[in-house]
Every structure is written in C-alpha cells, then in structure tokens.
C-alpha cells in the first residue's frame, strides 16, 4: 500500500464508498476513482458493529 503522504502534491486516487454523486464529482475534477457498489452487510447494523470491534 502507498505509504507516502497526501499532503504533498501527490495526485489523489480515491475509493468511494457510499453516495455515487461524490464519485461523479471527483471524476469531473479529473481524479481517478473506483466506486464501490456498496450494500449493507448481511445481518445488518448489528453484524457491522461486531465486525467493527474485531481485529482485522
């Protein structure tokens, strides 16, 4: 994974998870974007909360 910092003049390369609108707006600025076709995990919010507490 990229270990350099964003703060210098490095081009942004973005993964967009959520509102597709934001991916389109980044593309309009010439930014490389991969949009994730996200959906809630099976089991819903409770499972997501559990997964959020577990290690990777």
């Amino acid at each position: 994974m990229n270990t350099t910092d964003v703060m210098p003049q490095e081009p942004l390369r973005v993964v967009n998870v959520g509102l597709e609108l934001f991916a389109r707006e980044l593309e309009a600025q010439g930014v490389e974007v991969v949009h994730v076709d996200w959906r809630p995990p099976a089991g819903g919010a409770e499972i997501a909360a559990l997964l959020g507490r577990l290690g990777d």
Partner: peptide
C-alpha cells in the same frame, strides 16, 4: 467492486477513501 477491498484490487495505489454510507456501517 462490492467492497473496499475489491476496489483496492482495481486500484492498489489508492490513497483516499471517501465514505458516506449510513452511520451504522
């Protein structure tokens, strides 16, 4: 891709994640 990890397979050098899913997730 259906997941963030799936997206990173397409763009291994991604440096920013823009996340706007519902708060629970």
């Amino acid at each position: 891709p259906r997941t963030l990890d799936g997206a990173l397979k397409q763009m291994p050098d991604a440096n920013v994640a823009l996340i706007s899913v519902p708060g629970d997730y």
